[in-house]
Design a binder for these strands. Structure first.
Length: 259
DNA sequence: ATGGTAGAGTGTCTA
């Protein structure tokens, strides 16, 4: 089975590229982030014509997440226990969507950006990660993948210029500690060993052409998932040219479940 | 410190 994660920066403006990507790489399950579409605005026809089911949630114009699967899409849930709303009172922000696809539990995650270290949104980011960690502990003993845009550079090698980020989010010790706690719990980041390099390049200043990017898109697997990983790659070509998202897709291959 | 680009949608916000 082949799964992938991709921050598409608008599903509607990128739908042709998404469909081409699914076909080019024969992808079974794609987790997408920043769908930037209400549920009634989703471009479903081409996906369904290619045999994919879609589950999506997006309450605002920025942070929607979705799962696109041709190997089943069961037990769909939005958010996770303890996830609070942000913005309008009582509104649960759409940053996590989970489903069982082809026998594995997969979560499409869009970790809050944080904006600035002194912004309330940064506190929200750390709180959100803490709640995700608490909720995800119960999935460690089943084949589960926490995939998406983590908006954290776990090491200095994951930033094109650490000095330039010294007063920015994504590299602060609390964010890195929050990421590390998932690994300490038993989650394994399964892409890095197979797929070095960045996954995101800002649109301006020709960051992609100069390979000045960040590695912030990751796939964390429970033991039962990690043992099935046979390879991974970053589809850098997808980031090139006109009309690209600012993120490249990350693809992971899994063997069949042991029996 | 600022601004550069892109996408949502027409006011600016978010990344």
């Amino acid at each position: 089975m082949r799964i992938a994660t991709w921050n598409v920066n608008s599903l509607r403006s990128r739908i042709d590229r998404v469909e081409a990507f699914l076909e080019r790489h024969d992808v079974d399950v794609l987790a997408v982030q920043e769908t930037k579409a209400r549920e009634d605005q989703l471009p479903l026809m081409g996906l369904q014509a290619r045999g994919y089911d879609v589950a999506a949630h997006g309450l605002d114009q920025w942070n929607g997440v979705a799962l696109i699967s041709r190997v089943g899409l069961e037990d769909v849930s939005v958010g996770f226990p303890g996830q609070p709303g942000w913005g309008d009172p009582g509104v649960v922000e759409a940053r996590a969507l989970g489903a069982t696809c082809g026998g594995i539990r997969i979560w499409s995650l869009y970790v809050p950006n944080g904006r600035k270290p002194d912004d309330p949104h940064y506190v929200y980011k750390l709180d959100w990660l803490s709640r995700l960690r608490e909720a995800s502990a119960q999935w460690l003993d089943t084949p589960t993948a926490l995939v998406g845009d983590w908006n954290i550079c776990p090491t200095d090698d994951d930033v094109f210029d650490v000095a330039q980020f010294k007063s920015s989010t994504h590299v602060t010790p609390p964010e890195r500690a929050a990421f590390q706690r998932f690994l300490d719990d038993g989650w394994a980041e399964v892409t890095r060993a197979h797929a070095p390099g960045y996954t995101y390049w800002d649109y301006y200043r020709q960051r992609f052409e100069r390979d000045r990017g960040l590695k912030i898109d990751f796939v964390l697997g429970s033991a039962g998932l990690a043992e099935r990983v046979t390879g991974a790659f970053i589809d850098r070509d997808e980031r090139a040219g006109q009309g690209a998202s600012d993120h490249a897709p990350v693809v992971v291959d899994l063997t069949d479940a042991p029996r």
